[in-house]
């Protein structure tokens, strides 16, 4: 079931078209990755979903309700982790979470507040003000705030930007748990390896427009090739349209996913006793991303 549905979204800032006819859906129990370089329009999309910005054209619905006409109902089921760190000058961690809980109508929510603080390792910092927290702790607090009301839709705008490896893994684990619990997650990140690991589907956005979208594995298969590296016992002079690199007796081939490896090897026609080693590397989302950004539509 589509929790978030965006149709033909356009967002203009004066003469600049930041988002250009973007459409996608995020389903319950799915992690959808929005990938793109800086200024691609990812944060503008998130800002329009949260009504921080008004869409110029197009519709955004959460649980089939238009976010501009049913602000309260749609916001009540949405959690947001913004890209920039939020600072609260006067209050400590526990107070901030209590306020956040109250903003979503949850007055007696101490159990959840305590459980989230423990889960995100904020417990020992609960009496500290934000300015006394490290960057990673601030990020954990922002995640705790977004999860306070058990949202059906979670918007994570580069949640792992600038955090250490340990926290990054912990965030990944949280995302996987939330996905299992049926939360629909919209995830933006610059780390393509992370997107490949976490996202069921991705959209690659460039200059405000979605260039490609689909299931992550499928997109990688469509837009990239496997790399077959063969090391021979004896150096041979070899020429083949799929050969992309040759160093001494090591040859690297690009093999499309549509071609079976066995069939390709038989095409190469190497003597079996001349093959010393053979490695296959799968295509990556990073390669697919580069391909889309460099060449646009296929």
């Amino acid at each position: 079931m589509a929790v978030l549905k965006i149709e033909n979204l356009i967002k203009d800032y004066g003469a600049l078209r930041a988002v250009n006819k973007v459409s996608f859906e995020v389903h319950s129990g799915e992690v959808f990755g929005l990938l793109g370089p800086n200024g691609a329009g990812k944060t503008s999309i998130i800002s329009t979903i949260t009504t921080l910005e008004k869409p110029t054209e197009g519709t955004i619905t959460i649980n089939n309700l238009d976010v501009t006409r049913h602000e309260r109902a749609t916001k009540a089921v949405t959690g947001v982790v913004p890209q920039e760190l939020v600072t609260h000058g006067y209050f400590n961690v526990e107070e901030i979470l209590t306020f956040q809980s109250g903003y979503y109508g949850l007055r007696k929510n101490k159990e959840k507040i305590h459980s989230l603080m423990q889960q995100l390792e904020l417990w020992s910092h609960r009496h500290k003000k934000i300015r006394h927290l490290s960057g990673g702790m601030k990020r954990r607090l922002m995640i705790a705030k977004a999860l306070m009301h058990s949202p059906q839709l979670l918007l994570l705008d580069e949640p792992t930007a600038g955090v250490d490896v340990e926290l990054r893994y912990s965030i990944w684990e949280q995302v996987r748990d939330l996905k299992k619990a049926g939360v629909a997650i919209l995830f933006t990140t610059h780390y393509l390896e992370e997107a490949e690991k976490l996202c069921d589907r991705v959209a690659i956005i460039h200059e405000g427009k979605i260039q490609k979208q689909g299931e992550t594995k499928e997109l990688v298969r469509k837009l990239t090739s496997r790399h077959l590296t063969i090391t021979l016992k004896n150096k041979v002079e070899y020429s083949h349209p799929a050969l992309i690199n040759q160093q001494d007796n090591t040859l690297e081939f690009r093999v499309p996913y549509s071609t079976k490896i066995g069939q390709f090897l038989s095409e190469l026609n190497f003597r079996n006793d001349n093959i010393l080693d053979m490695k296959i590397r799968e295509g990556t989302l990073e390669e697919a991303f580069k391909y889309v950004l460099n060449r646009g539509e296929m």
Binding site: R72, K75, E84, G105
Partner: peptide, 17 residues
């Protein structure tokens, strides 16, 4: 203070009219 510290996003993103 809320605008400067970005806390304004919490208020806007919450179901407050």
């Amino acid at each position: 203070g809320m605008k400067f510290g970005r806390e304004i996003i919490d208020i806007k993103a919450a179901p407050l009219t």
